[in-house]
Amino acid sequence: MYMNPRPGMPMDNMDEQNELIKASQQGDRTALSRLVDLHAQELFGFLLYLCGNRTQAEDLVQETFLRALQALKHYQFRAPFRAWLFRIAVNLHHDERRRRQVRKPAEYDVADEENLHLFTADPGPDMLAERSEQVQALHQALTLLPRQLRLVVVMRDLQEMSYAEIGLALGWRPGTVKSRLFRARQELAAHLRPLWEEQE
């Protein structure tokens, strides 16, 4: 059975993650659970920004992990695991949108008061209010972006993924990632500036 060498610590080391994957491929359920735990937060955050709806994001996180875990025995370490996982999530989100024939994300519920705890474990009332406005404005602006631009800006600026990972997850060349990111930031800034200036 796999034992985490640093219990409770985030595993940013690629070797350790690969060890977890190998143990999972051999049927170690503890390693599998740890692997899910390791990526659940970032995947949920990504899908929350993409969908703007907590329930939908949760459903997609579950579906993504189930697909990934079932296909894990075929994973051959050619692409970073995070890129592989996010690619599954992006495809599922695309299918979901097509199935529902939704052109824009679902009704935004992320900044509703009951969901604000999602963004921080123990926020004070002032921080809650400020955060609520910021997040709501950000999401409003994100919904106005075309899907491709929304994907790239969320992955890079909010999830801090590398250009290589983004390229693999979206199937784009590195140059395309950078030029689309530039356009995405430009459009996002145009939508966000009036909203954030209002708040200040």
Binding site: Q41, R54, H117, F119
Partner: peptide, 8 residues
């Protein structure tokens, strides 16, 4: 600076 969403 936007905080990361916590896992449900």
């Amino acid at each position: 600076r936007i905080p990361k969403p916590a896992t449900p």
